[in-house]
Design a protein around this nucleic acid. Structure first.
Length: 363
DNA sequence: AATGCGGGGTC
DNA sequence: GACCCAGCATT
């Protein structure tokens, strides 16, 4: 085994983070690695920080302890449990994947990387991660942490994402035959701590003696990244439509942003254009007791645009505003249970404006 | 190869 | 504010 692998594995043995999906003292000693836990954590961790994931992981594993349990759960329950974690396509693919594993594989994940790669929501990274973390296979695990460690280690100056080919080749040279999963997680832990994006702590690094940019003092300049586009600012409106202590929620289209999630009705804003100020859903015979626009504005930043969302409140005199077609996607939700509706954070912020005003006694 | 897709932490 | 993160799917 190479010196690099020995140093990293020794670092991991002494400093591995104790995480609920890993085997460790806190996360229950003597347990065997659970492929369902590895899979679930890897899906949740895609572009998401460890601290954000942990409470969701605990909730999911408590409610749905294995693939078969998750496979028979109602879509709406799973989507609501995912609310707030973001990237909701992951939850839609999670459901699909659980049902495939349950039906086609009798509730047990395949161990082969290429077989894993075919499942919904599992790409190159996750297939390699599951194969090596859960099943002890040698695989080339390449995430943002490892990309950072490798480009610094070998002074790879090609901008990402083009550099991925070189990084993978470098990885193939250094990943050991044994403990490939621990080796990868050692680099990930290193990237999450000492080999940080800003102000890397090279003086404390276990592989300083092998790191080109560390010794040159240039590690912080790596990896080089392609220039990214500026985020546009958009504006839009959402409505709080209330009758008899219930609020009107809609289920968003599966294909679009926040797809499949419950939401307040809005005016059709998206990444490319502002909302037009008119309700996007068709409501009939709306008889209004009271209407007001709130002063407070919801400010929210998505991956590729920012949004300033206005909020209008309407109190109705009656609730027979849904025609048969609308009843498919809209629902009157008890306001006291609004926390269980599973609203994405954008709309949870709008609800907060509403509840804050009620607490202050504004009528 | 480029784009769409959340949300929260860090500096 | 800008930047980033245990990426994937689609085009």
């Amino acid at each position: 085994m190479s010196v690099l692998a020995e140093l990293l594995l020794a670092y991991y043995d002494d400093n591995a983070r104790d995480l609920p999906w890993r085997i460790g003292p806190k996360s229950s000693p003597n347990k065997k690695i659970n492929p369902y836990h590895v899979w679930l954590s890897e899906i949740m961790l895609q572009q998401t920080t460890v601290n954000a994931v942990i409470p969701y992981f605990e909730e999911f594993t408590a409610r749905w302890p294995d693939f078969k349990a998750l496979a028979v759960a109602a879509d709406a329950k799973i989507m609501a449990a995912w609310a707030g974690l973001g990237y909701y396509a992951r939850a839609r693919n999670l459901i699909k994947c659980a049902r495939i594993v349950s039906h086609d594989y009798d509730g047990t994940l395949p161990q082969d990387e290429d077989e894993l790669r075919k499942l919904p929501g599992i790409g190159d990274y996750t297939a390699a991660a599951i194969a090596s973390f859960a099943f002890g296979k040698r695989a080339l695990v390449m995430d943002a942490n490892i990309e950072r460690v490798i480009t610094r280690l070998f002074e790879i100056s090609t901008p990402l994402p083009k550099a991925k080919i070189e990084i993978k080749a470098a990885l193939d040279d250094i990943v050991p035959q044994e403990r490939a999963g621990d080796f990868a997680q050692a680099m990930m832990d290193l990237g999450a701590s000492l080999c940080s994006v800003k102000n890397p702590k090279c003086d404390q690094c276990p592989i300083y003696s092998l790191c080109t940019t560390g010794q040159l003092g240039t590690a912080a300049f790596y990896p080089v990244k392609a220039i990214k586009k500026a985020k546009p600012m958009r504006s839009g409106m959402a409505w709080w439509i209330e009758y008899d202590d219930k609020v009107l929620l809609v289920k968003r289209d599966e294909k679009s942003m926040l797809g499949g999630m419950m939401a307040l009705p809005d005016d059709g804003w998206n990444a490319r254009r502002d909302g037009d100020g008119a309700l996007i859903i068709a409501l009939k015979d709306m008889q209004i007791r009271k209407i007001m626009q709130h002063d407070a504005l919801v400010q929210h930043s998505f991956t590729h645009f920012s949004l300033k969302l206005k909020l209008t409140s309407i109190e109705l005199i009656q609730d027979n505003i849904l025609d048969e077609q609308m009843k498919e996607k809209a629902i009157w939700w008890p306001i006291k249970d609004i926390d269980t509706a599973g609203l994405p954070t954008l709309f949870a912020k709008a609800v907060k404006i509403k509840t804050d005003e009620n607490e202050k006694g504004i009528k």
